Computed example of a mutant assay.
Amino acid sequence: MTEAESPFPSSATEQPIVLVVEDDSSIRGALRRLFGTVGQQVQTYGSAAELLQSELPDAPRCLVLDIRLPGRSGLDLQAELARNGTQIPIIFMTGHGDIPMAVQAMKAGASDFLTKPFRDQDMLDAVAAALELDRARRTQSKALDRLRVRFASLTARERDVMMLATDGLMNKQIAWELGVSEMTVKMHRGHVMRKMDARSIAELVRMADSLKVRGSDPSPLQT
């Protein structure tokens, strides 16, 4: 069973939440109280297995993780989350003898690590930075999802025109490449700009870069 002061908000919420994995119940309680002083939602777990068996909240989140745990270690959990494709900033808590392990964790993408005993403000600052990082990731992910939906609305010919236009070809060159009239290219290009909601060719180029469709197979919907 996990410990929490209140249940998770609904999955659609944007209320940030701090997840804590620590086998020492006194430390779990102290962290829950610390985060509560700044109004942060908290969910605590006694082991890596408990977290892996739980549904993580669909909200800005970060993980405060002890590097030494019974069963799966903090490093094992970090690796497992990466294999599962779970993106979450991780702040490791380490003992003085765990610095080499902490360096390994940072190389594997950890957001920060704090050596026990740490100052409360250092932990609050690390969590605030990690939550902001996750907010930015979620914003980027949602924007990319919207781009993919727009791109999916293009016809095959419109995708061809978009790829060639964002590679720098002029309408006449695109017409030659596709074996169609320049007027047809202009029509398709107008459809592309409207469907992609692009205000300029420069903006369309940025969209194509985000979708990874410039000069490559125009099928980014499963990436």
Rank of each mutant, 00 (worst) to 15 (best):
L63R: 04
M93G: 03
L154S: 08
V103T: 05
T2E: 00
R68I: 01
A128D: 08
R119Q: 15
L34E: 06
R33Y: 11
E80F: 03
L77K: 03
S11P: 00
D209H: 10
I174Y: 04
G85K: 00
Q222F: 13
R159S: 07
P100F: 02
P89V: 15
I91F: 05
S25K: 11
A198M: 13
L75W: 07
S141K: 14
T184H: 08
V38Y: 05
V20L: 09
I90Q: 01
T86G: 05
F92A: 09
A30T: 12
T184V: 08
G29W: 04
E50C: 01
G179Q: 15
K195I: 15
R199N: 08
T223R: 13
S141T: 14
A12Q: 08
L211T: 12
R150H: 13
R150G: 04
L19S: 00
A79G: 07
T13Y: 09
H191P: 03
T184Y: 08
L81T: 02
M93A: 02
M193D: 04
I201S: 06
Q15H: 07
A143K: 10
L169T: 03
P16Y: 15
P218D: 00
P60F: 15
T155W: 04
E22P: 05
A208Q: 12
A128Y: 01
G97C: 07
L124I: 12
A59K: 05
N84T: 03
R137C: 01
D112H: 15
A30P: 08
S10I: 13
G109P: 01
A175D: 03
V103S: 00
Q43H: 11
G85A: 00
Q78D: 07
C62H: 06
R119D: 14
I91D: 04
M162I: 11
Q121K: 12
D160S: 08
E177W: 00
D58V: 15
E158L: 07
M187S: 15
T2Q: 02
T86V: 14
T155Q: 01
T94L: 07
E14C: 10
L75D: 02
L81H: 01
R214S: 02
P89F: 15
G215V: 11
L131T: 01
G97V: 06
S54T: 13
G29D: 13
M1L: 09
V42P: 05
A79H: 11
V205E: 03
L204K: 02
V20S: 05
A102Y: 07
Q140Y: 09
G74Q: 00
R32W: 08
